[in-house]
Computed example of a mutant assay.
Amino acid sequence: MSTAIATFDDFLKTDIRVGRIVEVNPFPEARKPAWKLKVDLGEEIGIKKTSAQITQYSAEELVGTLVMAVVNFKPRQIGKYMSEILVLGVPDANGNVVLIRPDKDVPIGGRLY
């Protein structure tokens, strides 16, 4: 697998922020099991919505969780739902998405650098 080479300027264009999941709802219309999320990204950005294929997490354990999210991608239509941000994760050995999150409590809205 080859990886495209990115410049540091390319990295700086991607705005990745800390957010807190404030609401989780079922997404029965999704092709693959997913949740509808609302993520608070702080005063500057506000609350944004997205969907995520992270149903191995319960709604109860997700609410209040800090996550990392790309906030400057163009909104994307997912079925009848408009996703405004991309919550980040990596696959585990079984292909389930494991969320990328800060290991300490940090202010929401903080930018990754």
Rank of each mutant, 00 (worst) to 15 (best):
Val18Glu: 07
Val18His: 10
Val18Asn: 10
Val18Thr: 13
Gly19Ser: 12
Gly19Val: 05
Arg20His: 08
Arg20Glu: 12
Arg20Tyr: 07
Ile21Pro: 00
Ile21Phe: 05
Val22Gly: 07
Val22Tyr: 06
Val22Pro: 09
Glu23Cys: 07
Val24Ala: 05
Val24Cys: 02
Pro26Gln: 15
Phe27His: 13
Pro28Met: 12
Pro28His: 12
Glu29Leu: 09
Glu29Arg: 15
Glu29Trp: 03
Glu29Val: 11
Glu29Met: 11
Ala30Lys: 15
Arg31Ala: 13
Arg31Phe: 05
Lys32Asp: 03
Lys32Glu: 10
Lys32Cys: 03
Pro33Gln: 11
Pro33Arg: 05
Pro33Glu: 13
Ala34Glu: 04
Trp35Asp: 05
Trp35Ile: 02
Lys36Gly: 01
Lys36Glu: 12
Leu37Phe: 02
Leu37Arg: 03
Lys38Val: 09
Val39Lys: 01
Asp40Gly: 06
Asp40Thr: 08
Asp40His: 06
Leu41Cys: 09
Glu43Lys: 15
Glu43His: 15
Glu43Thr: 15
Glu43Asp: 12
Glu43Phe: 05
Glu44Ser: 14
Ile45Met: 09
Ile45Glu: 07
Gly46Lys: 11
Gly46Tyr: 05
Ile47Gln: 08
Ile47Leu: 07
Ile47Pro: 09
Lys48Asp: 14
Lys48Asn: 11
Lys49Trp: 08
Lys49Arg: 15
Thr50Asn: 09
Thr50Ala: 08
Thr50Val: 06
Thr50Trp: 01
Ser51Gln: 10
Ser51Trp: 00
Ala52Tyr: 02
Ala52Arg: 03
Ala52Met: 06
Gln53Val: 04
Gln53Met: 12
Gln53Ile: 02
Ile54Cys: 00
Ile54Asn: 00
Ile54Val: 09
Ile54Thr: 00
Thr55Cys: 11
Thr55Phe: 00
Gln56Ser: 14
Gln56Phe: 10
Gln56Asp: 15
Gln56Trp: 14
Tyr57Thr: 07
Ser58Phe: 03
Ser58Cys: 11
Ser58Val: 12
Ser58Asn: 14
Ala59Ser: 13
Ala59Asn: 02
Ala59Pro: 01
Ala59His: 03
Glu60Pro: 03
Glu60His: 09
Glu60Gly: 08
Glu60Ile: 10
Glu60Trp: 01
Glu61Met: 10
Glu61Ile: 02
Glu61Ala: 09
Glu61Asp: 09
Glu61Asn: 14
Leu62Tyr: 01
Leu62Lys: 01
Leu62Val: 02
Val63Arg: 08
Val63Met: 11
Gly64Pro: 08
Gly64Phe: 05
Gly64Val: 09
Gly64Met: 10
Thr65Gln: 08
Leu66Arg: 08
Val67Arg: 08
Val67Ala: 07
Met68Thr: 14
Met68Lys: 04
Ala69Ile: 10
Val70Asn: 02
Val71Met: 05
Val71Gln: 03
Asn72Glu: 08
Asn72Met: 07
Asn72Arg: 02
Phe73Pro: 10
Lys74Gln: 15
Arg76Asp: 12
Gln77Phe: 04
Gln77His: 06
Ile78Gly: 05
Gly79Arg: 13
Gly79Ile: 01
Gly79Lys: 15
Gly79Cys: 04
Lys80Leu: 13
Tyr81Pro: 01
Met82Arg: 15
Ser83Met: 06
Ser83Gly: 02
Glu84Met: 03
Glu84Tyr: 10
Ile85Val: 11
Ile85Pro: 00
Ile85Arg: 00
